[in-house]
Nucleic acid binder design. Structure first.
Length: 579
DNA sequence: GCCGTTTTCGGCCCGACTGTTTTCAGTCG
């Protein structure tokens, strides 16, 4: 059973315990455990089999036993018991805005509401108001929520690239307003998370009301409501919720820190602060002497708590607080550390620009090198490049000269189901750079898929594995593959693992990229650009790398090309021949 | 249920908002 699936069982159990009226801390304990399981780089099933599940943060004896039971029998006994007690539709009812576990349970007990349909019916027939603690307003709110399509289902999260497109436009527009002082995107977008639920914008202003009103009038914003001095809420025409909070300059640091989150980071930060006699809120940091410090910068907030400033990408409660206290936060890789891009396409396959256009755009970005890696012989949709075509393509790459840029003739070669590649070794040997990827037969099972990709890594001419798990965020799960085995093989063979910067992919994910680096594998961050305009997608790859705690030393394309070329396995074997 | 340079027991982040209450519980971010 995969980590994600185990985590779902514990999230479900937390929901059930919550309905059952368990103390909130117990419910929270199960949610914490679910997070730890989901974010574990290693297989929790294997960990459990070795009796080591308690090594996960937030997993103690009880939860370790429940993991073992789940793996053995396919269910957690406690969950099965609670499921017999509460109808399956009840959890959905708890997700309706304004209702929670307590209120949903009350409606279940008093009116037999055990589904969204029953809830709607009860509200329409004015039954809700007969329950103590509920009134006409509650009925109205329930009907509004159900009509708005909230329907208890979680609203689809927004891909970061879309969120940033909107968020950056709003921030830029607000910065132009004469009343604006500081304006920043906060929340999950500032942390460069994979997806965002909504957008948070934090600002200081000389005239808060004027800025809030200007926000409400932005062409991007459909509906908006201004709430006095504090800010405004709006919804874009695409339906994205945006919160603007305007704060006094002396509290800028407290509020930016608070609204950047994550919720768990803040919770852990505050828990730790309380233990040491401090008190932290969005209004300031109160020290053990009872003096409240307003912080104009985030650095002050963290400094008062005895920590280094923590880059937003790390604020996920994954060990950053301890590292910040001990002064051992990593020097995270930056976009400007990248010296080249090793995965892009041209019109030879499914790209939109020519070799020369891509090369010029790469130089424009300040790169020292660019690998042209069009698809290979077995690629479908009319985008295949047959061997003869590739030979001509290599010549074309070599004939293209752009001053200051080393242009590399490469290919993104398909890894066939049996692990072989779809060009002959002789032809591969003519290439400067080979990235091998899976583009077909995704559902062959974990053992086969792992064997397939490891076989490609063992090929002496494969430099990197492209988008190693094949996931598409929110649309397609990673294929069934043993990532730990891939990481081990990458470290052993000296094959680089890609962090693909396409915002739909970001593959390897942050969890696996961290695992890979810890296991001694090297990574490359690529754009997988299909046009000059998407070379910039490396920023999402860099974000994933930063969220994986990677430094420049973990990322091979921070090296100059000659160094990088020597650092790869091909370089090692040819160096061996020379000596 | 978890966890420990204040604790192996007694804690567990913080504040705003809402609707329903006569002082606050539940929900939300």
């Amino acid at each position: 059973m995969k980590n994600a699936e185990i985590a779902l069982h514990f999230d479900e159990l937390a929901d059930l315990y919550e309905l059952d009226g368990a103390v909130v801390y117990r419910v929270q304990a199960y949610r914490n455990a679910a997070k730890a399981i989901r974010e574990a780089g290693v297989s929790v099933a294997e960990l459990s089999a070795q009796g080591r599940a308690e090594e996960l943060p937030g997993v103690g004896k009880t939860i370790a036993e429940k993991i073992a039971a789940l793996l053995e029998t396919g269910e957690i006994p406690a969950a099965a018991k609670l499921k017999a007690k509460f109808p399956p539709g009840l959890v959905e009812v708890t997700r309706v805005p304004g209702l929670g576990p307590k209120r949903a349970r009350k409606l279940f007990e008093e009116l037999g509401v055990d589904s969204l349909d029953k809830l709607r019916e009860a509200a329409e027939t004015q039954q809700i108001r007969t329950v103590p603690g509920f009134g006409p307003k509650a009925e109205e709110n329930i009907l509004t929520a159900l009509a708005a399509g909230a329907d208890g289902r979680e609203r689809e999260r927004l891909l970061l690239s879309k969120a940033l497109e909107i968020g950056e436009a709003i921030v830029a527009a607000l910065r132009e307003h004469p009343a604006a002082d500081k304006v920043e995107l906060a929340g999950s977008a500032r942390r460069w998370a994979e997806t965002c639920k909504d957008l948070d914008v934090v600002a200081t202003a000389t005239d808060a009301r004027a800025l809030a009103e200007a926000f409400a009038r932005l062409p991007l914003i459909g509906e908006a409501s201004v709430s006095g001095e504090a800010g405004a809420r709006g919804v874009t025409h695409q339906g994205v919720a945006v919160d603007l909070r305007i704060v006094p300059p002396e509290n800028w640091g407290n509020l930016l820190q608070h609204f950047t989150g994550s919720a768990r980071h803040n919770e852990a930060l505050r828990t730790e602060a309380v233990r040491r006699g401090f008190h932290v809120s969005e209004y300031g940091v109160t020290d053990p002497e009872g003096i409240t410090h307003a912080c104009a910068t985030e650095e002050e907030v963290y400094r008062l708590l005895g920590m280094d400033w923590i880059p937003p990408e790390l604020r996920e409660d994954r060990g950053e607080l301890e590292a910040a206290r001990e002064g051992r936060l990593p020097q995270l890789v930056r976009l400007e550390d990248l010296r080249g891009d090793l995965h892009c396409h041209t019109t030879a396959s499914d790209g939109r620009n020519t070799i020369a256009e891509m090369a010029l755009a790469a130089r424009e970005r300040g790169y020292e090198y660019l690998a042209i890696t069009d698809h290979s012989a077995s690629h479908g949709f009319g985008n295949d490049v047959q061997p003869d075509e590739l030979r001509r393509h290599i010549e074309a790459v070599r004939a293209t000269e752009v001053e200051g840029l080393t242009l590399l003739a490469g290919s993104e070669v398909n890894i066939l189901p049996d692990g072989s590649l779809d060009y002959d070794d002789d032809l591969l040997a003519e290439l400067d750079w080979v990235v091998a990827s899976v583009h077909t037969s995704f559902r062959i099972g974990a053992a086969e898929m792992t064997k397939r990709i490891v076989a490609a890594m063992e090929h002496p001419l494969v430099d990197a594995i492209g988008h190693p798990t094949g996931r598409l965020i929110g649309r397609r799960d990673p294929y069934d593959v043993d990532v730990e085995a891939l990481v081990e093989a990458a470290a052993r063979t000296g094959t680089f693992l890609e962090i693909n910067g396409n915002p739909n992919r970001r593959d390897l994910s942050e969890v696996y990229a961290r695992l890979a680096a810890e296991a001694g594998a090297r990574l490359v961050i690529d754009s997988d650009a299909h046009g000059t305009d998407t070379l910039a997608n490396v920023r999402y790859g860099v974000a994933t790398a930063r969220r994986a705690w990677l430094t420049a030393a973990d990322v091979a394309n921070t090296l100059q090309w000659p160094e990088l070329s020597r650092a790869r396995k091909r370089g090692r074997s040819s160096a061996g021949r020379r000596s």
